[in-house]
Design a protein around this nucleic acid. Structure first.
Length: 272
DNA sequence: ATGCCATCAAGGTGATGA
């Protein structure tokens, strides 16, 4: 089975590229992030025509996650247990809390594999409330993930998507550029490490070692041709899933040309 | 060995991204 994850930065702008990628790469299950649309706007029929079933959650032009599968989609779950809500404006006396669970996590069982398509909050800046939200979100994900393995240590679980964290210094092209930035801070790296500690291994890195191996390149300042990127998209697998992994790759080709997402797809091959 | 910011909704600009 072939599993992939891709932050597409708008599915409506990228639908043709995604369809071509599915066919070219022979992917069975594809998790998407940043679809940037509501459910009724998702170009589902185009993927149905290629043999894929679609599960999606999106409430507005922000966030949005999906799973496409040609090996079945069962037990679709919007959000993971304990997923924090984003809240703003609710702190002061007399203020009305503005809270919502954002469209950042979608689970589904595809061909016996429990897949979670995840779009971890960006964090914005170290001083921004969104940064604390990001850390809370990751801590809650760790707890949910630990729970799944406590209930079934042999579960085949894939936590995939845009983690918005560069866990190692080699995962950015120049650490000096990221001083006092999000994505590389110790609390973020600790939060990512806690999920690894809970039993979810990066199954891609052994097959795509750095330095200089990235999944994201900013649109500005020739970042891609200059090979100035970040490794922030990951497939973390439970022990049973990691044991099945036979290969992995980051598809840099998809970052090339007009109309590319700023992220490249990450692909994992699993033994049948 | 790629190509010099993109996306959305709303409005003619602002928010978001990492």
């Amino acid at each position: 089975m072939r599993l992939a994850t891709w932050n597409v930065n708008s599915i409506r702008s990228r639908a043709d590229r995604v369809a071509a990628f599915l066919q070219r790469s022979d992917v069975d299950v594809l998790a998407l992030q940043e679809t940037k649309c509501r459910d009724d706007q998702f170009p589902e029929m185009m993927f149905n025509a290629l043999g894929y079933e679609v599960a999606h959650v999106g409430y507005s032009q922000w966030n949005g996650v999906a799973i496409l599968s040609r090996v079945g989609i069962e037990d679709v779950e919007i959000g993971f247990p304990g997923q924090p809500c984003w809240s703003a404006g609710g702190g002061g006396a007399g203020e009305v809390a503005d809270t919502e669970t954002e469209a950042r996590a979608l689970g589904a069982t595809c061909g016996g594999l429990r897949v979670w398509s995840l779009y971890v909050p960006n964090g914005r800046t170290l001083a921004d409330p969104h940064y604390l939200y990001k850390l809370d979100w990751l801590a809650a994900l760790r707890n949910a993930g630990a729970d799944w393995l406590a209930k079934d240590p042999d579960a085949q679980v894939a936590l995939v998507g845009d983690w918005n964290i560069a866990p190692q210094d080699d995962d950015v092209w120049d650490m000096t550029v990221f001083t006092h930035s999000t994505h590389v801070s110790e609390p973020e790296r600790a939060a990512f490490g806690a999920i690894v500690e809970a039993g979810y291994a990066d199954v891609v890195r052994p097959y795509a070692p750095g330095p200089g191996v990235y999944t994201y390149w900013d649109y500005v300042r020739l970042r891609f041709p200059r090979r100035e990127g970040m490794r922030i998209d990951f497939v973390l697998g439970s022990p049973a899933l990691a044991a099945r992994t036979t290969g992995a790759l980051i598809d840099r080709e998809e970052r090339k040309g007009k109309g590319a997402s700023d992220h490249a797809p990450v692909i994992v091959d699993l033994a049948d």
